[in-house]
């Protein structure tokens, strides 16, 4: 069985339960992102996988080799798991080249060549080899940390919020470059982040963590469009939740009546929509199925505005917050139509 396999991992710190039984499978060569609010236990999980700390219970295996759970735990320096930490943790007393070559044998005659190749691979100019970590920018430091971890050709790569210290522009570019590199080398990867956009764009599989448990694990698109509960829905992006009722294969809410999955139990539920599924238009241009409402608030945000719309069919609900192009120039008090695009998703009442 290749890839990473976690079963029932538990860890408590004093009276605080950091991990309350975690199961996860990361197929060999794939990328998994663990996402969750700060304090949810994701960094603890990463440290257990790396072997910096040991679980209280559970089983941990990599490519069929049991690292924890049978016999003595394998110490971190024998796991061959690469780690890139949040701040890089570059050794301040070593040059860039010595940092990258840290895990390679110093007697290896091909060491210098390997280091040069890795610098090239992560996009660092060769002229930087003798610089000190404090002379590098944040993005360059993270590239050095990645090259250092890649040097030993790890069977698993752990990334602990490695992009969070970078500027917004640099962040996306670095993330894409790292994802492409890891995919090309077919290295099994686990990324920990609190940034949902990063998790969704980086990984083949996303696991949402909350209070020491995985709430849902799946493909990014699945999780985004079909979250299991309101927490997952809200964590992965803006979500509009409306009270609704299921009956006879239909779901009914303030925005109208939609087809429901036949397997859904009848009764009260919640309807989830992503803001991009809602289209605002003038009453005159509205399609037949649209609901009507009144604009009660506008906040200008450049290319798009957020308008608040109170639905005529449900004036007691909090106004819907919808994103519209600024050129539409809506006014407060204006009557608008709201149409729903695409399938709706039903959640249990939270």
């Amino acid at each position: 069985m290749s890839g990473l396999d976690l079963q029932g991992l538990r860890k408590t710190f004093g009276s605080m339960e950091a991990l309350a039984g975690v199961d996860l499978r990361v197929p060999s060569g794939s990328r998994t992102a663990i996402v969750g609010p700060s304090g949810c236990g994701k960094t603890t999980l990463l440290r257990l996988i790396a072997g910096f700390e040991q679980p209280d219970a559970g089983r941990l295996a990599l490519d069929g080799r049991v690292l924890f759970g049978e016999g003595a735990p394998v110490p971190s320096h024998h796991r061959n798991i690469g780690v890139v930490m949040q701040d890089g943790a570059l050794f301040p007393h070593l040059s860039v080249a010595d940092n990258i070559g840290f895990g390679l044998s110093r007697r290896d005659p091909s060491r210098a060549g390997t280091v040069a190749g890795l610098m090239d691979l992560v996009g660092l100019p060769g002229a930087m080899r003798d610089k000190r970590p404090d002379q590098l920018s944040g993005g360059q430091q993270q590239r050095v940390a990645l090259a250092r971890a890649l040097a030993r050709e790890p069977s698993l790569m752990l990334l602990d919020e490695p992009f969070s210290a970078l500027d917004t522009g640099l962040r996306a570019a670095t993330r894409e470059a790292v994802a492409a590199l890891l995919a090309a080398k077919a290295i099994t990867t686990v990324l920990v982040t609190h940034d949902q956009a990063e998790a969704l764009s980086f990984a083949d599989q996303v696991a949402v963590m909350h209070d020491g448990r995985f709430r849902q694990i799946g493909a990014p698109r699945d999780l985004y469009l079909r979250p299991k509960d309101a927490m997952v829905a809200a964590f992965l992006g803006d979500a509009i939740l409306l009270p609704a009722t299921v009956a006879q294969g239909k779901v009914d809410c303030a925005l109208g009546c939609f087809a429901a999955d036949l397997s859904t139990d009848p009764g009260p539920c919640q309807l989830m929509l992503r803001p991009e599924q809602l289209h605002v238009s003038t009453i005159a241009e509205a399609p037949a199925a649209a609901s009507t409402g009144e604009v009660v608030g506008i906040s200008f945000g450049g290319a798009s505005c957020t308008i608040q719309v109170r639905l005529a069919s449900a004036p007691d609900l909090p106004p819907l917050r919808l994103s519209v192009p600024s050129r539409a120039e809506h006014q407060i008090g204006e009557a608008v139509a709201v149409a729903v695009d695409g399938p709706v998703h039903i959640l249990p009442i939270s």
């Binding site: 790396a50 110490p75 050794f91 250092r148």
Partner: peptide, 29 residues
């Protein structure tokens, strides 16, 4: 000294004593 340096050295295959000698000791100089 941030213990992260010793963690990083361990993830790069260094046994605890080697990690202390090569990652921590130079910073104590």
């Amino acid at each position: 000294i941030d213990p992260a340096f010793e963690d990083a050295a361990a993830s790069l295959g260094l046994a605890p004593w080697a990690a202390f000698r090569r990652a921590v000791l130079p910073q104590l100089r």
